[in-house]
Design a protein around this nucleic acid. Structure first.
Lengths: 397, 397
DNA sequence: GTCAATTTTTTTATTTCCTAAAAATATTGA
DNA sequence: TCAATATTTTTAGGAAATAAAAAAATTGAC
């Protein structure tokens, strides 16, 4: 869906305001390229809706003093929720600056019915909102992230592992029970949204986010927009093929997937292969890799080799992506910085070797720590983007 | 550069007109979602500019008869030119329907100076236009395709093999000498533009074009726009890495590139490796591969193996792309259908094996023949797109 | 033949939203 | 007190969309 010029301008103004806040109207005009009159008009609307605050400023110089504008964190709240791979369902209530006001984690009852899952989630959300200091009608929208194949425009879940296959109108089901609009997206897309909206990514319009966790996923922004393939699926970096012959078997059934070498599950899996152990379940995978980190640090050559290979192959996978797409920046996120530090040397060498010379610049690459809140912030970012596009007032209060 | 709403609407109307011509205003309104009044206004401008013709229609039914609209092929002409990998410089003059009016091929004098190349090209273009039945001032614009790294917004060449490195303002240099606006793009991007504007791709807004020739290239359309990375380089499918260890050396210097296995140069190269021959030059590469085709057809197991591997690896490379980007369609073009038919079985098997099940559908894939005119049609398409965005009259006649 | 019915196209009134320029506002320093 | 100055708002004007009314061009029934 193409935004109208006006929607686009409004979003531009808000994005500049977020990045530069507090900032005057005049500065916003020069940042955005719009005229002062237009800024006045757009800002007036945002102030009336309670999303933006004004604040006098004593400049000391001559002339009419500027009025600084900033996002009003209390202007509205978004609920960001995530179903994690390991089970707990996280609910955070986020203000307009991306700060968390309240946070809960709930273990859901096992089920294979998407309808049942939606029911449970509705209940958890209702409780979380009730228990929070935020009034129910100050919640503008709910954003939910799922590790699923889904259509984020309609909020329909197509495929969620261990559940009966969809399509199921997940967002609608929850919205009906909760009485608040609900938006849905894939977990990794949410992280990318969080980067783009709240973090360093906010001034970068073309970047790729790589998440090195139990699995390996990626999401791309291009021209300031999340790239969504024709099936609405995130970039499946983990299932690109790195080893063409006799590769390791991946959970997806294919052979030689990057994930089977460079994701945590792959790293642990290779270790188990070498020692004739059964691969541990997801629940203890993090413990297993922590032990491998110890070994590698203690000088275990074989284990070091596994990490080195993980870095080398991840470099190939990323190089392939860079050669195809030429993103401006790449950000690798992980919950486990110690893993990143063990693989980064091989990764950089592999990138330098495999990316086309014109396309390679080390400054492209950055590493970051993934924390549980990022998902919720992403869900909130998705909601904010939607809110800012809309023109209705936020609250009925 | 974001189009304004009006520009976008104008382009939308023209695209629908092209695809459905001849077509009435009313039908255009429902196709485009715009109101009749808007269509009247946009079409009036296009008719005044001479780009669209009206034609009465006897419907037989009741009511005011519809007036059919179609693109006026003689409304303007675009020059499409290409510097081919093997040397000849092709110049075609193309009408607004993409049909070729006049065609020349010239061998340029060898040089390493981009300025010299631009001079030669200017001369050839001037002669080609003079020799054609089209008046000089009916030429609205010149589009040139180069197998180069370049910035297509500014018409600057950054890197063209065997030439001194840029940046060099190639388009400006030619435009100054010729007195006609000039646009530049990468050759493979041009092919994608030709597909999107003139051919089957015109109703598909997300597709990937793969060109299997001496090298191996690709270009992607997403949301009806050519995807251009942050360096303006086309998707370097040929330099994605398929063999992670001890792969063949590629012209780019790296090891294990897809191009070293699945491009014609790679196919011939593997044959030479096996027989201890020196790799032939680009000029006789096509003869060499033709001989290999004969051998394979005659039952030579080793040669068949090379083609099979080419297909298998191309399948992996494409699967990686599909898993990352999820394009709606994939079109594989080649000048040599016989090569495609030798590799297609292995290619399809490899795709079926390596693409994630949700993303795979055989209908996605199509094969086509690449003819020399396609490049020029692409150059013309680039020019037309630009023309349609502009609002000045086409000609000074 | 005339005219009601019908379909297509154009016109008109209205709205939205931008820009440029003028006006208003709010402050400091001479 | 007011000139100077910087910021913001207002105003007038224009581009381009929509919805609805009007106009145009034809057929078929009587």
């Amino acid at each position: 869906m193409r935004l109208t010029d006006h929607e686009f301008n409004r979003l531009t103004v808000l994005r500049h305001m977020r990045a530069a806040q507090p900032v005057s109207r005049t500065d916003l005009a020069s940042l955005s390229g719009l005229t002062g009159g237009t800024i006045t008009q757009i800002v007036r609307e945002l102030v009336q809706r309670g999303m933006v605050m004004e604040q006098r400023v004593e400049t000391g110089g001559r002339g009419r003093p500027r009025v600084n504008l900033s996002i009003n964190p209390q202007g509205a709240y978004a609920v960001g929720a995530t179903l994690t791979a390991e089970g707990p369902f996280l609910v955070d209530i986020i203000d307009l600056n991306g700060n968390c006001v309240s946070s809960t984690s709930t273990m859901l009852r096992g089920t294979q019915q998407l309808a049942d899952l939606a029911d449970q989630i509705s209940g958890v959300l209702r409780d979380a909102i009730a228990a929070s200091p935020v009034a129910h009608d100050a919640i503008a929208m709910v954003g939910i992230g799922l590790p699923a194949v889904l259509d984020n425009r309609t909020g329909t879940v197509l495929m969620l592992e261990t559940f009966e296959p969809g399509p199921y109108p997940f967002a609608d089901a929850i919205a009906r029970q909760l009485g608040v609009p609900v938006r849905l997206d894939n977990s990794i897309n949410l992280l990318a949204r969080a980067m783009h909206w709240f973090d360093d990514g906010s001034d970068v319009d073309d970047f790729t986010l790589v998440v090195l966790d139990l699995g390996l996923g990626a999401a791309c922004y291009q021209n300031g927009q999340l790239v969504i393939g024709s099936h609405g699926i995130e970039a499946e970096l983990g299932h690109t093929k790195i080893v063409p012959e006799n590769g390791r078997r991946c959970q997806c059934g294919a052979l030689g997937c990057l994930q089977a070498y460079s994701a945590i599950s792959g790293i642990v899996g290779q270790h188990c292969d070498a020692h004739g152990l059964a691969e541990p379940s997801y629940l203890v995978m993090r413990d297993a890799v922590a032990e491998m980190v110890q070994r590698a640090r203690a000088g275990d050559i074989a284990t070091q080799g596994i990490f080195r290979r993980a870095g080398h192959y991840l470099g190939i996978g990323l190089a392939n992506h860079i050669n195809m797409q030429d993103p401006d920046r790449i950000l690798i996120l992980s919950q486990h910085p110690e893993i990143v530090s063990l693989i980064s040397e091989a990764l950089l060498a592999s990138l330098a070797q495999n990316v086309l010379p014109h396309l390679w610049d080390q400054a492209k690459l950055a590493f970051g720590k993934l924390d549980a809140l990022s998902y919720s912030r992403g869900a909130a970012a998705m909601v904010l983007e939607r809110l800012y596009q809309a023109r209705e007032p936020l609250q009925q209060t």
